[in-house]
Design a protein around this nucleic acid. Structure first.
Lengths: 261, 261
DNA sequence: CGAAAAGTTGATCTACATCAACGTGCGTGG
DNA sequence: CCACGCACGTTGATGTAGATCAACTTTTCG
């Protein structure tokens, strides 16, 4: 991988989280990289605790999260809440939901963030002009579903301890791909209440479970900084098998069909 | 089932579950209907308890379920199991997973079933030639995700009673769309153990929860026949709001772009 | 017709929820 | 600059939804 200048938009290789993430699936050609760069060109700044998409309402357009964290969550009429997934840089917001008249979930920023709107015409264009990129987009959606399905397994069949370990192992792995984790260390800008809503637990029990993980020597916490002492042990404790994240690359079936242009 | 011959494109309307399901989203033109009919032409018979896709293995091709029931499930190494979703006629199997080298879940038939293989070239062809059908396919995948996300809310935040009521209300609604429920009555070819694995409960508690639903007069059970006495009350008990099933049709954004050919 | 699968029910246990109280850091407004 | 409020974290005491264990009945099916 010799970084060259990228004609279309001048200057040198842009390594946004989206590039990094998609490249964990397919290697991108220069034109593909350039198209992604351009897609992501106009960033909007979003403050913390802002709803980007709101459950039950129509919404304007899909986004890519360029920096910061958000959560995708659903609420019951009486206020009980479930965090469906964490949205980290490189992830899409409401790409799918574009197909629906109204959103069935809310996406809220946890931190200050930057996003780029992705109009539907861009998506259509990608499917027409960049089949391999289209596959990467579809992969991204499919992976989102895989993550949710795995979370379902957590809530249904893992203990609180396992759930927490699994979630942290997953986040570590996802953050590594977009270079937001170093040596098992990352910033987790998530309150224990939000963790509770993600894991289907009570706030109090989340606190105790985190303590148990600390006491077991699996993690250390310093404010929002989380240190995973031994990724393998943590994965073990959470029965985490990263297979479902599908970082292993495009299936062979498709490789033939999508040989680089 | 009394389907008649389908001259490749001519003759009379075939009403397979897939047609019915996709039409709950977009009305289909004749060429679109015909293409779907042809897609689904060569049916394979599958016996009960057969794995169509197996977790951790490669698999040959995607399928549409034409008749019968299946489950999509994941297992932990120690055997704990989570049913991610029920697969009913008109649903796709492994459409997405095509993008991955290996499957992260298993799909197993519950009953005798018929399926039709869908080669990837067909999908590509649809995206090229039938944009509205392509949108319907994408919708179908997006809806699958919505269903799983809603199930996540169930496991995380609904009580056992609510979960069961919600699941039954959902199944009723989905079966109605493909005309497999009449007046709140449908066949539920699912053991209590499988229900337990779908709802994250124990077998015993599922049994008791079903009893409570019966005692509350919400349902009646006779073998595999399930009768919902009052869909509204059941929905209420399960905090079921069918919005997430997105039967309400294509979003306006897309309607403009995909005006019938 | 016999055996296995599926369903039912009671007794007991426990993982996690709920309730309650207190500590701690920090942003803001007086 | 302090203090007050508030969001967030921590910990103990107690309650409970649902798990587990065990036994039995009914249905299904080879």
């Amino acid at each position: 991988m010799a970084p060259k200048s990228c004609s279309l938009l001048g200057s040198d290789r842009k390594e946004t989280a989206l590039h990094l993430k998609l490249e964990s699936y397919v290697p991108l050609s220069e034109p593909e990289r350039a198209y992604i760069s351009q897609l992501v060109d106009r960033a909007e700044v979003v403050r913390p605790r802002i709803d980007i998409i709101h459950q039950g309402e129509q919404f304007a357009s899909a986004h890519v999260l360029l920096s910061g964290w958000a959560i995708r969550h659903k609420a019951l009429p009486d206020g009980r809440r479930q965090v469906v997934n964490f949205v980290i840089p490189g992830d899409f917001i409401g790409l799918y939901a574009h197909l629906f008249e109204i959103a069935d979930h809310t996406v809220t920023t946890l931190t200050g963030a930057t996003t780029a709107a992705v109009e539907i015409d861009r998506i259509v264009e990608i499917f027409k002009r960049f089949p391999r990129l289209a596959a990467a987009l579809a992969w991204s959606s499919a992976r989102e579903e895989s993550i949710i399905a795995e979370r379902l397994l957590s809530l249904g069949r893992r203990t609180a301890f396992e759930r927490m370990a699994h979630l942290l192992a997953e986040l570590l792995r996802r953050l590594q791909v977009v270079q937001l984790a170093y040596k098992g260390q990352f910033i987790l800008p998530v309150t224990q209440e939000t963790l509770a809503d993600a894991l289907g637990l009570s706030l109090v029990h989340v606190n105790r479970t985190l303590r148990r993980l600390r006491e077991a020597g699996l993690i250390d916490i310093d404010g929002q900084k989380l240190m995973v002492n031994d990724a393998a042990s943590l994965a073990d404790a959470g029965k985490f098998d990263e297979m479902y994240l599908h970082h292993s690359g495009l299936s062979r079936r498709l490789q033939k069909k999508l040989a680089p242009a």
